Amino acid sequence: MATSASSSPISSSLGVHAIGTAALRGAVAGVVASLVMAMYAMIAAATYQHTGFFTPLYHIASTFIAPDAMMSSMMAAGSGSTFTFEFGPAVLGAVIHMMVGAMYGAMFAVIARMARLHGVALIVSAVVWGAVVFAVSAWIGLPLAAAIFGGGDPIADMASMVGYPTFLGEHLLFGGALGLLLAARPGTR
């Protein structure tokens, strides 16, 4: 009895190519959805949080670098300068955020493909996925990343520092954007 990749349950029912295509489309949609999420976070930081427009990017970057840019941005915002910009930490934060968005987008797209979700069910499921990503990030992923990469409390406690309602809202927007993007693309069903 020979076994091959084509005889596995996933490859026989959906095809390895279909799963790979779903993962790629999900990764691209995840990057775009992460940008929607980031814009909301940055607008929240500049407006009702009063911590500085670019602070969310610096906050994410502090996974790998000292939180100096984040702290400087927050202090400047407290003094009325909402748009303090530091190129390196901003780019690092954006790249990290988009990579994580790509990963979660790919994971969801594969799950959605295997479950054969489409239309409203796909979009609603993606919003629920955003809530799952919120919970995993807040209580597992971020504390783990802080421990592994030395990000400390700014990373481990990111959800509470940002505020749970805002952090949840960001992730629901991520899920909604992800679902809309995947539902709008032919071949993701």
Rank of each mutant, 00 (worst) to 15 (best):
A77Q: 02
M114S: 05
D68K: 06
A90C: 01
G78H: 05
A69F: 01
V127L: 01
A106T: 08
V124S: 09
A147D: 14
A115K: 13
I155G: 00
M114F: 12
V133I: 07
L180R: 01
V128Y: 14
G179F: 01
M103Q: 03
V95Y: 10
M74P: 02
F167M: 04
G176P: 03
Y164V: 10
F134Q: 07
Y104S: 12
T166H: 11
A76M: 03
F87S: 03
I148L: 14
M158C: 00
G105T: 02
M75C: 00
A94L: 12
A66L: 12
P143W: 04
D157Q: 15
D153M: 14
F83Q: 00
V110G: 00
G141R: 06
A90R: 06
V128H: 11
V132Q: 11
I111V: 15
V162F: 09
F108I: 07
D68H: 05
F134I: 06
H171N: 14
P89M: 04
G141D: 08
H97R: 06
V91C: 14
L178V: 08
F174A: 00
P143F: 00
A69H: 05
S160H: 15
H171S: 07
A146L: 05
A109N: 03
A69G: 03
A112D: 09
G141K: 09
A77D: 00
A177C: 06
A138T: 05
V128K: 14
Y164P: 03
V136W: 03
A146D: 11
F83G: 05
M158H: 01
S137P: 04
P165G: 06
G152R: 00
S137G: 12
M158E: 02
G141A: 13
G176Y: 10
A147R: 11
D153T: 15
G105V: 08
G105F: 01
I123K: 08
A131T: 07
F167Q: 05
S72W: 02
A102L: 01
S137R: 04
A69Y: 11
G152P: 13
M114Y: 09
A66D: 14
L142E: 10
D153L: 12
F174G: 00
G80H: 04
M75D: 15
T166Y: 11
G151E: 02
V95D: 08
A147V: 11
G175F: 07
A112Y: 03
S137A: 13
G179T: 01
P67H: 11
A69T: 07
F167P: 04
L122C: 04
I155V: 15
S79E: 09
V132T: 14
L117E: 12
G175Y: 07
M103S: 14
P165Q: 06
I96K: 11
S81G: 00
E170Q: 15
A135W: 05
A121N: 14
L178W: 08
A106Y: 04
M70S: 04
G78Y: 12
G169D: 01
S81V: 08
L173H: 10
V132L: 14
G80W: 02
V127D: 00
I96E: 09
V91E: 12
S72Q: 13
V110N: 06
G93C: 13
M103Y: 15
I140K: 02
G105I: 01
L180F: 08
M99C: 14
F167Y: 13
L168W: 10
